[in-house]
Amino acid sequence: MQAVNELMDAMNMEKQITESADRMLKLQAQSMPQMAQHQEIMSEFFHKYINWESIGEDIKKVYKETFSEKEIRELTTFYKSDIGQKYARLTPTITEKTAKITQGVIMDHQMELQQKIMQKMQGN
């Protein structure tokens, strides 16, 4: 578990969790503007439950179950390198941009999905 803790530190995981919660809220507000009026309540809720204290141990378990100790140490070495630190710092931005691309594609084809659902519902 010590190796996992070192990896979490090298990845700045606690900070990433907080930033991820903020990005999820931002994306949700963009995709559902009607929820913007509830932004403060949603932010309090997300930060209450999506934080290192509440999910950190579970995240550590996932890494421990997924990677061998040797692999965890290799990941730690990577994340301690300059490129690893850059990757850790930019991962939330990359994830947000990727989510926006995905969201855009879904929005562009939303009518097709709705039509298929309606066809199926009419067939039943």
Results as ranks from 00 to 15, higher is better:
residue 39 Q to E: 03
residue 56 G to H: 05
residue 59 I to L: 10
residue 34 Q to S: 03
residue 88 A to F: 04
residue 35 M to P: 05
residue 98 T to C: 03
residue 34 Q to R: 01
residue 93 T to C: 09
residue 51 N to I: 01
residue 98 T to W: 12
residue 31 S to V: 08
residue 37 Q to H: 13
residue 81 S to C: 03
residue 115 Q to P: 04
residue 35 M to C: 04
residue 71 E to R: 03
residue 71 E to Q: 09
residue 80 K to V: 14
residue 101 I to Y: 13
residue 21 A to E: 08
residue 78 F to D: 04
residue 51 N to M: 05
residue 79 Y to P: 01
residue 21 A to S: 11
residue 22 D to K: 07
residue 67 F to A: 04
residue 75 L to W: 04
residue 122 Q to K: 15
residue 116 K to A: 04
residue 92 P to S: 09
residue 22 D to N: 08
residue 21 A to C: 03
residue 119 Q to K: 14
residue 53 E to V: 02
residue 61 K to C: 03
residue 60 K to D: 01
residue 30 Q to L: 06
residue 109 H to W: 13
residue 61 K to V: 01
residue 22 D to Y: 06
residue 116 K to P: 03
residue 64 K to L: 02
residue 100 K to D: 00
residue 103 Q to G: 07
residue 77 T to S: 15
residue 50 I to D: 07
residue 38 H to D: 05
residue 42 M to T: 03
residue 71 E to S: 08
residue 64 K to P: 10
residue 86 K to T: 06
residue 30 Q to P: 06
residue 97 K to Q: 12
residue 37 Q to G: 12
residue 111 M to Y: 11
residue 75 L to I: 01
residue 122 Q to N: 11
residue 22 D to T: 06
residue 106 I to V: 14
residue 57 E to I: 02
residue 102 T to N: 15
residue 20 S to G: 15
residue 57 E to V: 03
residue 97 K to F: 03
residue 86 K to V: 00
residue 51 N to C: 07
residue 114 Q to H: 14
residue 49 Y to C: 07
residue 114 Q to N: 15
